[in-house]
Amino acid sequence: MTVPTRTWLVTGSSAGLGRALVTELLARGETVAATARDPQALSDLRPAVSGTLWTARLDVTDPERIRRVVGEAVHALGRIDVVLSNAGYALVGAAEEASPDQIERQLRTNLTGPILLARAVLPYLRAQGHGRIVQISSMAGQRGSAGTAVYCASKWGVEGFFESLAAEVKTFGIGVTIVEPGTVHTGFFGRGKELTAALPAYADTPAAILRRRAEDGRLPCRGDLAKMARAVVDVALRPTAPLRVVLGSDAYGSIRRGLTARLADLEAQREVAFSTDLTDGSA
């Protein structure tokens, strides 16, 4: 029996996980709408014999361009079954060091862009009665760390939005999955990073240590890019996929420690929390 192909829209396809996802999909003979800020970076990609590759220029900070590209992809390919929202980058440095422009650009790319993309594709997914949005987050979406405060803010925002969206669109047959990868050799802390302007006051702090490791390329990475791409595609193909998917032993460990600590803090405050309710009969 022939397995039907799906049509996938992938953002941030020029490098890293986005490119690995497109490569994996094409190898499976799938139909892919691959987007990037520079479509020339996609010129060497080739579909399998049974696959289709459609490319377009897309900067996720441009709301009008998002709407136009989504519409053009649907028109060219007939439908979109799965959206792999992957575009993003890391701002590295202490929060106090970040300029207002850097903060705005980080949030516009990593948070507002995915929100606008989801809003642009939802009318098409609703009309066809099925679809899945897979949002690439990070282990930083579950646990903050020194030196990436603004980046973590963008990913925590992503987590909240897409968890809420999942509850809103389930009735339309649309699924939502949030992917939380750990570290992987993607160039994310290479050409894909941006640094804040260093302040002397932070020279010996954890934020500065991370900055130096990012600058020198000394950040340990445990994830296998190709394996992660396969895992994401496999999850997206499930009839019923989980809301969250963790990739990498470092992500599992970091998220587990963070959630365990937060749950312990919550339990320690139970008495105080209950003490602030209205007294019986006064509601």
Results as ranks from 00 to 15, higher is better:
Lys193Met: 13
Tyr124Ala: 14
Pro63Val: 07
Ser99Leu: 08
Val176Tyr: 11
Pro100Gly: 10
Ile209His: 13
Arg126Leu: 06
Ala73Thr: 15
Arg65Asn: 03
Glu168Met: 11
Thr148Ser: 13
Glu215Ile: 01
Tyr124His: 15
Leu199Ser: 08
Trp8Lys: 01
Val272Asp: 11
Leu266Ser: 13
Thr171Lys: 13
Arg238Ala: 15
Arg46Gly: 01
Arg270Ser: 12
Ala76Ser: 15
Tyr252Cys: 02
Ala34Gly: 06
His130Trp: 11
Ile255Leu: 12
Tyr151Pro: 09
Gly29Phe: 00
Asp38Thr: 12
Gly144Trp: 03
Leu259Glu: 12
Arg126His: 08
Val83Ala: 14
Gly18Cys: 01
Glu97Trp: 08
Val246Phe: 04
Ala203Lys: 10
Ala273Phe: 08
Thr23Cys: 04
Arg79Phe: 07
Phe189His: 12
Arg244Ala: 03
Glu159Ala: 07
Ala197Gly: 02
Pro47Arg: 00
Val22Glu: 00
Val235Phe: 02
Leu237Cys: 12
Ala229Lys: 00
Arg270Asp: 13
Val32Arg: 00
Leu116Glu: 14
Arg238Trp: 04
Ser137Phe: 04
Ala268Asp: 13
Gly182Glu: 03
Arg46Leu: 08
Ala166Ile: 08
Gly160His: 04
Gly88Lys: 08
Leu225Gly: 05
Ala94Pro: 07
Val179His: 03
Phe172Val: 03
Val169His: 07
Val158Ala: 09
Leu122Ser: 10
Arg79His: 12
Gly190Thr: 06
Ala264Glu: 15
Gln135Thr: 11
Asp81Gln: 02
Ala264Pro: 06
Pro39Ala: 06
Glu72Val: 06
Cys152Ser: 14
Val74Thr: 04
Ala283Leu: 13
Ala198Gln: 11
Asp44Trp: 02
Leu266Asp: 10
Asp250Tyr: 06
Gly78Ile: 07
Gln142Pro: 01
Leu195Val: 03
Pro206Arg: 03
Ile178Phe: 05
Val92Met: 10
Arg28Ala: 04
Arg262Gly: 14
Val176Leu: 11
Arg262Lys: 14
Ser138Asp: 06
Thr31Trp: 03
Gly51Tyr: 00
Glu194His: 05
